[in-house]
Design a protein around this nucleic acid. Structure first.
Lengths: 153, 153
DNA sequence: CTGTTTTATGTCGTGTGCGATACAAATGTA
DNA sequence: TACATTTGTATCGCACACGACATAAAACAG
């Protein structure tokens, strides 16, 4: 595409709808997550830990495509809520292992109700489920591509 | 979908790839926008103003699906960079009109180079242009649906 | 074994984002 | 006109998000 004013129209941007719909979707989760006492990024951290307990800070950060200096304060807030504990690894003094507490594990059962509520909210917006699945697939592809591009991995 | 642990897998989330790819795409823009002295949200505000100068704070916020209390400090930073001026409206004392400065208008010509660079970066990641266009379309649909859902509009 | 490099985590500063709230100007209503 | 309500913007507090940088532990090289 040649450099032109048309390319600068909001309508022709790719990152903008990505950016805007990401924020609006987060807002959609907010009331349901509030019942769990979680923000959306905190919810994501819990998802990662429910998949596998005892991961290191770095593991969690990589899984969520976040920097460790973003995850560290997130984990501290979750520790304050008594949902997890931060323990130095025995095999590597530099690493900090994150272990779910009893209440952290129990929270999963409440969280299990959330995805269905989100799906319902999307349905109410007149969006076909098939379309959502297609979108999800494309996004994971984009994510993989962007990941390859940022030469960290 | 019934409430289950499977629905909580990161792989099965919709908002997560949205959230992650949004951040990574913003990172992709960063080096190019740095040449313009802009952050990504500031770039979006400039896009809106290049489309139509003299808009009010509320107009810009609605266009970007942001709250006015997010846009206000953004505009103040752009005013500090001398890219625009904030002027109270003559017809409505409550409203603040945003007017581009000469350097603000000139910046558009530099910005015109950006989209092509982004497209190239995506190409280098082995992502088909057709796929990107399909994704863009789906995202704008999602955006419209989410907009309808949040009963503000 | 010692000096260098890498790795894992964290601190600090800046810039978003948004809910709750404040306040003044405009609008609507009796 | 008097009063309540709505509207447009902004302030405040909190929670991300990340680049730049710091630090200690581990791995590596000679």
């Amino acid at each position: 595409m040649k450099a032109s004013k048309e390319a600068l129209l909001l309508q022709n941007q790719l990152c903008f709808p990505l950016y805007a719909s990401s924020r609006l979707t987060t807002k959609l989760y907010a009331p349901y997550l509030e019942e769990l006492g979680l923000t959306y990024p905190q919810y994501l951290v819990m998802l990662v830990l429910w998949e596998a307990d005892g991961q290191r800070v770095n593991d969690i950060a990589r899984r969520l495509h976040l920097e460790t200096n973003t995850v560290t304060p997130l984990l501290k807030r979750l520790e304050q809520k008594a949902l997890l504990q931060r323990r130095p690894s025995k095999t590597d003094e530099r690493s900090v292992e994150i272990h779910l507490s009893e209440s952290g594990r129990k929270l999963q059962f409440q969280a299990m109700e959330v995805p269905a509520k989100i799906v319902k909210a999307f349905e109410g917006s007149g969006l076909k489920q098939e379309e959502v699945l297609q979108l999800q697939e494309s996004l994971f592809k984009i994510l993989a591509a962007l990941n390859k591009h940022s030469n960290k991995f």
